[in-house]
Each structure stands twice: as C-alpha cells, then as structure tokens.
C-alpha cells in the first residue's frame, strides 16, 4: 500500500513513511508515592496494532492517558508523530482518536449532537460533520437513536457511541482503552471487524484489553505490563512460544481436592499451576500428559487438552489470572 504522507506540510517531523509513530523511553508517572507507570519503553511503527496487557492497576490507562496527551508524565521521553505532548498537546491530540476506559459523553446532548460537537473541537466544518455523523451512527448501529438523549442509552450503546466519536476526525492513530468492555458478544465481534478494517487502511491501533481473544485477534505485538513495568514483549505467538508450552491440560478435581492433588501430579509436563478451581498442566504433548495422569490412578472430574493462549502467558508472568 502506498503510504503515508502523514506530514503533508513537512513542518512536523513524523519520521519516515512507516516509521515510528509513537515512542516512549523510560516513561514514568507517579501519583504521590505510587509509581503508576514505572519506566517503560516501547516504540510503535505506523500501521501496527499494539496491545497493552496487564491486571487491574498495572498502569495501562495511565500510559494511554500520557500517550493521549491528557496526563503529564513525571519523567522519561515520549513522542507521538515526532511531537512531545507536553509542548505540543493540541497537535498531538489532533492526530488521535481516543476511546477512554470511562465513557465521557455529554449526557445532556443528544446522541448525534455528541458527534457534531466533538467534531467541532477539531475545527471540522458542519458540511463535513453532518454526513460524517450519520455515517458513524450507522457504523455504531445507533442510527435509530440519533435523537435520543445519551442518558437513555444502555451501557453498551454508550460504548459504541464513544467509539464512533473517536473516529469523527478520521484519526490515523486510535487509542482504545478496553474498547469492548461492556459490549455483548455480537457487538464485540462487529467492533473487531471494524477495527480490523481500520487496521487494513493503515491506522495504528493502541489498545488495552482484558480479553485474551481480543488481544490475539487484534494485536500484532503486545507488552505485558504489571505494576507499571514491562514483563514481556512480542507478538502473541512469540509470547506463547517463549513463556508457555505448546499445549495445556486443564484438570478439575473439585474445588476441595485441586490443591491437595497438586503434589501427586509432580513431574508430569513442564510445569504445574494450581488454581482454586482447576489445575493447569503445561506440556508439549497434552494427550500423553493426560495419559500419565490416568497412569497414576488419578481420576479428574473433567479434563481438557487445549493449545496455550495468552492467558497462560499472563498467568506465568504475573502470577495472576486475567479475568478475576
């Protein structure tokens, strides 16, 4: 694809085509004694889908807010399209579409007016905004709600409106903080499809999520963050290869016995993870590991062999299950 005259005037240094659009060096944010983001570094090339994965309080939203040019960093370097958000806030934000974790729609305005008003903040003319708003309402499947007050929308509808709003300026970089939280499965799949299309058009996506399938589907590359630090970085496949085995056996012995039975499974597979509700056995060959379990005379209530996922990587790296 012929890409990207992102800096038509040549006055802003956006880097070479397909160059780095976002780079963070030792990015840090402290609130009092709390280091919400504790010196993280990464670079995102144009057109990449880049994910931040981490448990609650890991510092994902804080990172997103710094990239979005709304929260000032405490230390480190940050550049978006070659611009420092501290000194070029409006220029940085003009490049972005932002879906914050917490919806901040104007609840006093009607649904369509929310899009129009937001577009005005970018100095976009009404002749563009009116048809664009209708196009985005259709995209968010809210056309029949165009004249409703925002208060009257369901949580999922508000989320979809926020996402539609983020696209009003046709951004080349989209920041999505848990975009599909609160959406029903159908709406989520539709959104994935739309995000995929944006990605095909070369839009850079930065997203955080708690859903592993979302991360695996949408992210070219991701960082696993915990306590404000980067624990691992790579493509989903790379991360799985490096931090987990090919397959996983999930065994359930009943909530009473999971913990006690752990010791009797020692030595099977590469690694064992005992969770309250199940035991995870990491092995390259799940079936043969399961046979060894039977050979030891153990009879789990249920057993399942599956491929490793990011969930397992996450568990390994943070010691926590992602969905609490």
């Amino acid at each position: 694809m012929h890409n990207h005259a992102l800096t038509p005037t040549g006055t802003l240094t956006g880097g070479p085509p397909n160059g780095t659009v976002i780079s963070a060096e030792n990015l840090t944010k402290t609130y009092g004694d709390v280091a919400a983001v504790d010196g993280i570094s990464f670079a995102v090339p144009a057109g990449e889908s880049f994910g931040l994965l981490g448990p609650n309080g890991a510092g994902k939203s804080t990172t997103m807010k710094m990239i979005g040019g709304v929260t000032r960093r405490t230390a480190g370097q940050l550049s978006i399209m070659g611009l420092d958000p501290d000194t070029h806030g409006p220029e940085v934000r003009a490049h972005l579409g932002v879906v914050p974790q917490q919806d901040n729609l104007d609840e006093e305005l009607r649904v369509r007016d929310n899009l129009l008003v937001y577009g005005r903040y970018f100095g976009l003319p009404m002749s563009y905004l009116r048809p664009k708003a209708d196009e985005l309402l259709e995209f968010a499947q809210l056309t029949d709600k165009a004249k409703s007050k925002v208060d009257a929308l369901s949580g999922g509808m508000k989320r979809r409106l926020t996402i539609a709003r983020s696209l009003i300026n046709e951004p080349r970089i989209l920041l999505l903080d848990e975009p599909t939280t609160g959406l029903d499965p159908q709406a989520r799949h539709i959104l994935w499809d739309r995000l995929f299309r944006l990605k095909e058009q070369g839009v850079t996506l930065i997203l955080t999520t708690h859903y592993m399938d979302e991360a695996e589907q949408l992210c070219d590359r991701l960082i696993v963050v915990d306590k404000g630090r980067i624990m691992a970085e790579g493509s989903p496949a790379q991360l799985i290869r490096e931090h987990s085995t090919r397959e996983v056996v999930e065994l359930r012995f009943g909530s009473e016995r999971n913990a006690t039975i752990g010791s009797r499974l020692e030595g099977i597979g590469e690694r064992l993870e005992v969770l309250p509700d199940r035991v995870l056995m990491y092995a390259h060959d799940g079936e043969s590991a399961l046979e060894q379990v039977s050979a030891r005379g153990l009879r789990p209530l249920t057993s399942l062999v599956r491929r490793s996922s990011l969930e397992d990587v996450f568990l390994r790296l943070t010691g926590r299950s992602l969905i609490d």
Partner: peptide, 14 residues
C-alpha cells in the same frame, strides 16, 4: 468524505 488533516485541526483549535 474527507476530514482535513490533523495539522489544520490543531491550528484551528489553537
């Protein structure tokens, strides 16, 4: 439809 480029948005907003 085409939105104007970000540089224009920023200049107008400023």
């Amino acid at each position: 439809l085409r939105a104007h480029p970000p540089e224009v948005s920023a200049a107008r907003a400023r």
